[in-house]
Design a protein around this nucleic acid. Structure first.
Lengths: 150, 150
DNA sequence: CCCAAAAGGTTTCAAAATGCAACCTATCCA
DNA sequence: TGGATAGGTTGCATTTTGAAACCTTTTGGG
C-alpha cells in the first residue's frame, strides 16, 4: 500500500499494524462512516443525516477514506453528484466493526439499556469473535505476544 | 455501565455499541496504550517510552482509561507511584486490537515492508478472525444488518 | 422557460484537543 | 546531602473540530 496517514504524513509507529490502522481510521468519525456504509448509506446527505457530523468534516473524511482505498466514489446521473461505496478493503473492516460492537455491548451498556443489534439474514445475533491460534486454541493478551522485526 | 464518554459527556450515538466504543477508546492514543499494556507496559515512563506521546496527554488518557474501567491503577512501594494494569474489560479489548492488527496487515503495508507480528506461545501467527453466525456461517456486511431498537 | 428546492460542497471564524517545553515534587541510592 | 529517576502539572502555541453562512449545479413543477 502506498497510503499515507492523516498524522502529518508520517506513521505513529511504522512497524505496527495496529498503529497504522489507527492512523487511518482511528478518529472520531471514520469508523462510524464505514459502519453506516455497511448499513446502506451511500450519499453525502445520508451520511450526514445518520451521523449529525459537520459538513466540512464529512467532506474531509469521505475524501480521506477514498484516498485510503476504503471507499470508492463514483459519479451518478440522478442529480446526486457522487455515490460512495465500500471497496473490498472497506468491507474487510467488517470484522473490526463487529469487534468494536461486541466489546461495546459487553462493557459500555447497562444491562437494561436499549441498543441496536447486528443480526444475520435470519435475525440471529452473531457468534462472539474469538482470537484463535492456528490449531484452534483460544488466545488472549496473556497467551500471545508481539514479535518485533528489523 | 455508568461511564460517560470523552465527547462532552454525551454519547455520539447512544443506541449504537460501535459508537459507544469509539467514544471511549476511538482517539489517537487509547488503543495504542491498551496494545502496549497487553505487551507488558505498566508504568507511565514505559508507556511514554514506547509511544512517544506528550506527557500531559498520557496523563489524561491513563486517567480516562482508569475512569472507564479499562485500566486499574495501584500504588507501588518501589519508588514508582503507580502501576497500570488491564482490567477484565481492558483485556477483553484483545479481540478489537487483533481485528485492527489483522486489517492493517492486509491493507496498510506493502508486501515487503517489515512489520511486528502477534504470535502465540509457540511462535505461530493467529488464525484470521471471522465473523460467524450462531451456526457457523461466515458473515459479511452484505449478509447482516443492524436491527434498530426503541 | 423560470424559479424554488435539494445535493454537495467551500469558506470563515470560534472553540476544543493536542503537543512541546519548562517547571514542580517525591523518592531512591551513592 | 544531593543528583538521578519517576510521575506528574502548567503555560502557551499549533492543529483539529464544529457551527453557520455562503456558493454552484441539477432537477422538477408550473
Amino acid at each position: 500500500m502506498d497510503v499515507t496517514p492523516a498524522t502529518g504524513n508520517a506513521w505513529t509507529d511504522p512497524a505496527c499494524p495496529v498503529a497504522r490502522t489507527v492512523d487511518l481510521v482511528g478518529d472520531r468519525w471514520s469508523l462510524l462512516i464505514v459502519r453506516d456504509a455497511m448499513d446502506g448509506a451511500t450519499t453525502f446527505t445520508e451520511f450526514r443525516r445518520r451521523l449529525g457530523i459537520a459538513r466540512n468534516i464529512l467532506t474531509d473524511r469521505l475524501r480521506r477514506l477514498v484516498e485510503y482505498g476504503i471507499l470508492d466514489r463514483s459519479a451518478t446521473t440522478d442529480g446526486r453528484r457522487h455515490t460512495y461505496r465500500l471497496t473490498e478493503a472497506g468491507q474487510d473492516l467488517f470484522t473490526t466493526v463487529v469487534a468494536l460492537r461486541q466489546w461495546g455491548e459487553r462493557h459500555a451498556f447497562a444491562p437494561d439499556e436499549p441498543r441496536s443489534v447486528l443480526v444475520d439474514e435470519r435475525g440471529r445475533e452473531l457468534a462472539r469473535l474469538r482470537p484463535l491460534s492456528q490449531d484452534g486454541t483460544p488466545l488472549s493478551a496473556g497467551t500471545s505476544h508481539v514479535r518485533k522485526t528489523g
